[in-house]
């Protein structure tokens, strides 16, 4: 704040000059403006960090989302902030930029269709296939990956469906992995606590009472559901080879922030990560047409899922 005030008077009229007509409103911070060159610089930097593509027309996002970081770091311009982040060997600022720029919009059971699909088609099919395949395959884990799990709502929604479908001690070994690029999101997901606004979204009352315990103003997922999932920080722009193969991948509403080129790369990597008869679920408004011809869309009731050709 003091930096801002100092800057406003720097190089301005001398003390004796008449006061400018427009005084900054008390309590309203003067926002540092971003220049077109800085928009380009930071967009490129953020794309490198996250894969997120910020169109020049959406440059206001940089101001609204990074403004506070600029203030915290006492940087008086976006280029100063950029250089500080770039020079920071600890990557502390990069992490903060990622947390600020990523959209954590998520809710429990976002769009009911994929969860019905999971319950009535995908999981029963996988289990059937395991049962009819060679002996020993029953013991093979069923691996599910939520590729951009944000603060964990999608993963816990999947876990709740699995619990309701398979009971408390399923015969099958199920591995449920949630990954996200944001440390803060992964931290919250791992902790499994949600505030009243988060739990009000998408979570019916009976499920809230069955699977969560109140702790102050927050609600914490019960250990029996929490223990079904693991969480890791993963940047989808980087290699995902180390994750192994999955029977089911949820990659919803994350590729929408990427350029077409990055989407092509991502879904190719996902195709490599899926078992040959595995299932991919993308966001309801997303399409793989022109993105990844290795996938073929299939319809079941009101939902679409993808399988490899």
């Amino acid at each position: 704040m003091s930096g801002n005030l100092a800057r406003n008077t720097l190089g301005a009229t001398p003390e004796s000059a008449p006061r400018p007509v427009f005084q900054p409103l008390p309590g309203i911070r003067q926002q540092v403006k971003i220049s077109p060159a800085e928009i380009q610089l930071l967009s490129k930097y953020i794309h490198g960090l996250t894969g997120i593509n910020i169109e020049p027309s959406k440059a206001y996002l940089l101001e609204t989302r990074l403004g506070k970081l600029l203030e915290n770091e006492k940087c008086d311009s976006y280029s100063a902030f950029y250089h500080k982040a770039k020079a920071d060997g600890s990557k502390r600022l990069d992490m903060q930029i990622i947390d600020a720029i990523t959209t954590n919009e998520t809710l429990f059971f976002r769009d009911a269709n994929p969860f019905d699909l999971l319950k009535f088609k995908i999981i029963p099919e996988i289990i059937d296939k395991r049962a009819t395949a060679a002996s020993g395959s029953l013991a093979m884990p069923i691996r599910i990956w939520s590729a951009a799990c944000s603060t964990g709502q999608e993963v816990f929604s999947i876990a709740i469906v699995l619990r309701e479908l398979l009971g408390p001690s399923p015969q099958h070994n199920i591995q449920l992995l949630g990954t996200d690029i944001s440390d803060a999101a992964i931290r919250q997901a791992s902790y499994g606590a949600f505030n009243k606004f988060e739990i009000e979204r998408g979570l019916p009352r009976d499920r809230l009472q069955r699977y969560f315990v109140a702790s102050g103003d927050n609600w914490k997922i019960k250990d029996e559901i929490r223990s079904m999932a693991t969480f890791r920080k993963i940047n989808l722009m980087e290699s995902i080879n180390g994750l192994g193969k999955f029977d089911l991948i949820f990659c919803r509403n994350v590729a929408i922030y990427f350029t077409l080129e990055d989407r092509v790369k991502l879904f190719n990597k996902i195709a490599d990560t899926l078992t040959p008869d595995g299932y991919l679920i993308i966001g309801s408004t997303e399409s793989l047409t022109g993105v990844c011809p290795r996938f073929i869309p299939k319809r079941h009731l009101k939902s679409i899922f993808y399988q490899l050709r």
């Binding site: 769009d111 966001g283 309801s284 408004t285 997303e286 399409s287 793989l288 047409t289 073929i296 869309p297 319809r299 679409i304």
Partner: peptide, 16 residues
Amino acid sequence: EQTSGETIQNLEMTVA
């Protein structure tokens, strides 16, 4: 999201 989702999914199936 719901209405555009339905449109997009229908298009996706039609294109396929």
